[in-house]
Amino acid sequence: MSTLQIGLAIIGGLVLAGVVAYNAWITRHSAPRLARERSTHPPGDPSGDETVPYSPEDLEGTEIQRIDPVLGDMPGVMRPDPAAIAVAAAAVSVNPLLNQPEKRPGLDALIDVITPLVLDHEVSGDALLAALPGTRRVGSKPFAVEGLCDASGEWETPRLGQRYRALQAGVQLANRAGALNDIEFSEFVVKAQAFADAVGAAPEFPDMRAEVARGRELDAFASGHDAQLGFTLRARRAAWSPGYVAQHAAKLGFVAGALPGRMVLSGSQMGQAPVLSLVFDPQAAMAEDPEQSALREVALSLEVTHVPRSEQPFVRMRQTAMALAEAMDGIVTDDAGQPLSTDTMDGIGADLESLYDALDSRDLSAGSAQARRLFS
């Protein structure tokens, strides 16, 4: 073999080695970033920075909550579709403790049609439960029956073993499906009358036209003050794995939701709606090997009407978005992909304060039982 041939062979080998090394570098840097094991080593010790698959035990013992989002009219905000207000949910498979369910809010004249059911004798909770209709809805509106408990003196959903000296039935005036209409009111009358007949009570129905008009007015107010604020976190360079996102979110207090692709930040009070939701592709979370799934974006959302102002939800949302973007090398944008500037976020915060004031003025403060029922 001549010197020329030997030289060409060496050059060819070097070129081939370079191509292999380049391809390996590209593959490594384009792969989704993985969750890192919680290190027990001192800060700065490189032995504590080993990349490992995400472990569900990292979040064990935490709490799960669920919400369904609402929509509004601000930058980064969408309007609601009553026929399809559902989101993909819950990030990682964990086995946390569930919150105790919140006591069901009672009927309220502010948002319900309430019909007294006059009794001439006490009735048992057993009899009332047996007489309740099979479905607790009137059209698209919730239907409810309450009794005045003889033991506690409070209105409540009938319970076994209790006795009641007064009853009332109600139907909600409005929700995200719209205002109570004539057909729904008539259905309410039929359902409440049948129940009253079964327990020996006499219903006193209000005027249909007045109640339907109240429902329309309430729906008009709700439509103008229903909002969900959404930020999108987009990867600048390398994609993220579901475990990578979950681990960074967990450091900020998020826990896994009930469905794949959703994490929530719990409120300070038991039974309160989550302050924030973090949502990403549920298919990536349910993949056979989630750590090989690539996420280019995740959504951070706030259901404004469901979270009390005292929780400072927008301040926390803004801080959370910035912290995640910095930690994961991402950028915060609106749903159209436009980066959100400081001035834009300041403007959104001011608009939210006006929204809170308007809700307070109608005794429908964000996070209250009435607001959560109305905006659902």
Rank of each mutant, 00 (worst) to 15 (best):
S2A: 12
T3F: 03
I11W: 11
L16Q: 00
W25R: 13
H29L: 08
H41T: 15
S47R: 15
V52M: 10
E57L: 12
E57G: 13
L59K: 04
D68G: 15
L71S: 11
D73T: 13
M74G: 05
P75L: 12
M78P: 02
P80G: 01
P82R: 12
A83R: 13
A84D: 13
V87E: 13
V87T: 13
A90D: 14
A90L: 12
A91F: 07
V92P: 00
N95I: 12
L98Q: 10
N99I: 02
N99G: 05
Q100I: 05
K103M: 03
L107C: 07
I111P: 04
T115Y: 02
H121S: 15
H121T: 14
V123K: 13
V123E: 01
V123M: 04
G125A: 06
G125T: 08
A131S: 08
A131Y: 06
R137V: 06
A144T: 10
G147L: 08
G153W: 06
E154Q: 11
W155H: 02
T157I: 10
Q162H: 15
R165G: 15
L167K: 13
L173E: 00
A177W: 10
G178I: 01
F185C: 02
E187K: 08
A194S: 10
A198R: 11
A201L: 11
E204W: 01
P206Y: 03
P206Q: 02
D207H: 01
A210M: 02
A210W: 00
A213I: 00
G215V: 07
R216L: 15
G224H: 00
Q228N: 05
G230A: 12
T232E: 04
R234N: 07
A235L: 07
A239N: 14
Q247I: 04
Q247M: 11
Q247G: 05
H248G: 02
A249C: 08
A249H: 06
A250R: 13
L252W: 07
L259F: 10
V264S: 15
V264D: 14
S266C: 08
L278K: 10
V279R: 08
L295I: 09
R296G: 11
R296E: 12
R296I: 05
E303T: 13
V304R: 07
R309Y: 07
E311M: 12
F314G: 01
R316V: 08
M317V: 12
T320R: 04
T320E: 03
L324F: 01
E326D: 09
A327F: 04
Q338Y: 05
P339H: 14
T342A: 15
M345H: 11
G349Y: 00
A358M: 06
S365E: 14
F375G: 00
S376W: 03
